[in-house]
């Protein structure tokens, strides 16, 4: 646990906001789950960026002229079984698919990917997210919106203060793949004009959770 102070949390919110992340505070995991389903309901259906023969196609084309999913997909790999059951029930009530694995079948794009952060870094509004399991990694990569749940008690002031956590992940592990995520996918490669959603998520939402 970090030496959490209100300042660290406030700083995290400011810095994450500066890079275009949508930061929200939720009182409980149940509320976080509801938030994820709402995000999925309020977005336009995901564009199918490549051939996916079995995908059901909706009536409208996406903003880039690609077909869209008739049935929206939320992916939430490697999460607590009870929480997943709750999410799946709420998602299915809305007509969305909720997956915990098999994301390689949907590399053409999914609507929402849910990830759980290992810890946060206030100085840059960053989340450290696990991705050793392929589906966990894919959920945050191929989703149009990536939602990361971050416990307030795991927000640290700066990069050096999370170095030990990263070392523990790698040191005695047979394998580890993890990522510091700071805002949505972005570029300024054309005329230095800022643009988000190049290859990764178009939007990044961070749910700060009390614990």
């Amino acid at each position: 646990m970090s030496e959490m102070t209100p300042d660290v949390v406030e700083n995290f919110k400011i810095k994450a906001g500066l890079v275009g992340a949508v930061v929200t505070e939720q009182p409980s995991l149940a509320a976080a789950v509801q938030y994820v389903v709402d995000v999925c309901a309020n977005k336009s259906p995901c564009e199918i960026l490549a051939d996916e023969p079995e995908a059901a196609v909706g009536p409208e084309k996406g903003p880039n002229g690609m077909p869209t999913r008739a049935k929206r997909i939320i992916a939430a790999p490697e999460i607590d079984k009870a929480v997943f059951a709750d999410l799946a029930a709420k998602a299915e009530a809305q007509g969305f698919a909720c997956l915990s694995e098999g994301l390689r079948k949907h590399l053409a794009g999914i609507d929402v990917g849910l990830s759980f952060a290992i810890c946060g870094v206030a100085a840059s509004g960053t989340c450290l997210v696990a991705g050793t399991q392929e589906d966990t990694r894919l959920a945050g990569m191929i989703a149009e919106i990536n939602v990361i749940v971050l416990k307030k008690s795991t927000i640290y002031p700066d990069l050096p203060s999370v170095c030990g956590i990263l070392r523990d992940l790698q040191k005695d592990a047979a394998v580890n793949y993890s990522t510091f995520i700071t805002g949505p996918s972005r570029t300024a490669d054309i005329e230095r004009v800022p643009a988000t959603g190049v290859h990764g998520p178009l939007e990044l939402h961070i749910i700060l959770l009390e614990d």
Partner: peptide, 29 residues
């Protein structure tokens, strides 16, 4: 961790880039 506090700031005036990916070993594929 030290270099990452300077590299993005110097390169593109960012506090950190969107992704810093750590690949330790051959992962499941």
């Amino acid at each position: 961790m030290t270099a990452l506090q300077v590299l993005p700031r110097n390169a593109t005036a960012q506090r950190l880039t969107s992704y810093v990916t750590w690949m330790c070993g051959a992962s499941p594929c």
